[in-house]
């Protein structure tokens, strides 16, 4: 079996109070019975509008959250790259410390960490050695996102969850990051879960696409099928909303 990720009917509910003092508790079904599998080396695209639950799925895959029911198994490590390159890097840590942190807490020696940090930085094309002692605020958005990618890759995970990785970047910078992600996938045989609200970007990156709404998948199909002949009405509505050049 070639599947690296297998999710079976996962559900995640959040409990919210209706008002500040109310005793009535409302259940918010962030993820309401979602199943999917992702084979090695492929990209599973997850598209939907804000509030549909796609970020919750991301957190479930990297085990920051545990599902309330159902199961999700990943054969190997999974790491994550977030949307906002400004808040996803600790403003008070140097690049060296940020990227090397996950190695440091596993007891790896300083020299080895240094070597691997440099190596990973050059895979994300930030190979300049004086990058290491700088702080996040000294970099542009695109560079920060590369740092975030380096941080996620340093332990050589099987899976990378990309939660709107280019949505906060300028259009011309987006292209560079998307190209980089594709190259890395080939080089390192990575499996991706690529999340975005932008259908065009999801189409560009993914092999299989799932359209999500209110915690459920309304349609899951290969990229070609979704974009050429979507069956679900919501999917078609999303496709029609895309401004065309």
């Amino acid at each position: 079996m070639n599947d690296i990720i297998e999710a079976v009917d996962i559900k995640k509910y959040f409990i919210k109070r209706k008002f500040f003092f109310s005793s009535k508790k409302e259940e918010e079904k962030a993820v309401d019975g979602v199943s999917f599998t992702v084979p090695k080396g492929k990209t599973f695209g997850l598209v939907g509008e804000s509030g549909c639950g796609k970020s919750t799925v991301a957190k479930l895959v990297v085990k920051v959250l545990a599902p309330d029911s159902g199961s999700i198994s990943v054969r190997g490590d999974a790491d994550i790259v977030f949307q906002d390159p400004f808040s996803s890097l600790n403003p008070r840590m140097t690049v060296r410390k940020i990227i090397g942190e996950s190695l440091f807490v596993r007891g790896i020696k300083k020299d080895e960490i240094e070597r691997r940090v440099k190596e990973t930085l050059s895979t994300v094309k930030l190979g300049d050695s004086d990058v290491l002692d700088k702080y996040p605020h000294q970099f542009s958005g695109g560079e920060r996102q590369r740092i975030a990618i380096a941080r996620a890759l340093i332990r050589r995970p099987e899976v990378l969850v990309l939660d709107e990785p280019v949505s906060s970047l300028d259009v011309s910078i987006q292209a560079g990051i998307l190209n980089l992600l594709k190259d890395l996938q080939e080089e390192l045989h990575l499996t991706y879960i690529f999340i975005s609200h932008d259908l065009r970007v999801v189409e560009f990156m993914s092999d299989t696409v799932a359209v999500m709404k209110s915690g459920k998948f309304v349609e899951v199909a290969s990229r070609e099928e979704i974009y050429a002949s979507a069956k679900d009405a919501y999917t078609r509505q999303l496709l029609e909303s895309i401004p065309e050049i």
Binding site: S172, G176, L199, R200
Partner: peptide, 14 residues
């Protein structure tokens, strides 16, 4: 550099 629907390109320019 904007990806388009039905885009056949494997890489984006820039």
């Amino acid at each position: 550099c904007i990806p388009r629907l039905g885009d056949k390109r494997k890489r984006l320019p820039g």
